[in-house]
């Protein structure tokens, strides 16, 4: 995971670099919640470009971060989502609240 905060746009860009499963989400959750609480960003963007695998653990993980970001007055979106990941998110209804952007500039 790599985190980049763009002060000008109050945008927190989180590049996920691991496979998202039950094992990995616990640690990711802790680290990312710390960053969200620290910066209180207007927008949190998860970049899925380097995510080669995601199972249903990713749904709860994303919705949990969405809840935290919106509670702190921000918003959350995702970019570079693979076909498999999109299928899982679609099935769960998560895409009804979490938008997929073409790239992070569209998110601003």
């Amino acid at each position: 995971m790599r985190v980049n905060y763009l002060e000008k746009d109050k945008l927190l860009l989180v590049e996920l670099t691991e496979e998202i499963d039950h094992c990995k989400t616990e640690e990711l959750r802790r680290k990312i919640d710390y960053e969200i609480e620290r910066y209180m960003p207007k927008k949190v963007i998860f970049d899925f470009n380097s995510v080669s695998f995601m199972d249903s653990s990713g749904i709860g993980f994303l919705l949990g971060r969405y809840r935290l970001a919106t509670m702190l007055g921000g918003d959350l979106g995702i970019i570079n989502v693979s076909k498999g990941t999109r299928k899982i998110l679609e099935m769960s209804g998560a895409l009804k609240v979490i938008p997929i952007y073409d790239n992070f500039k569209f998110a601003i």
């Binding site: 199972d55 249903s56 653990s57 749904i59 709860g60 919705l63 949990g64 099935m91």
Partner: peptide, 14 residues
């Protein structure tokens, strides 16, 4: 409480 989505069996099935 563990942020489980309840989609496990649905995903296996589909």
């Amino acid at each position: 409480d563990l942020e489980r989505s309840g989609m496990g069996f649905t995903i296996m099935e589909s």
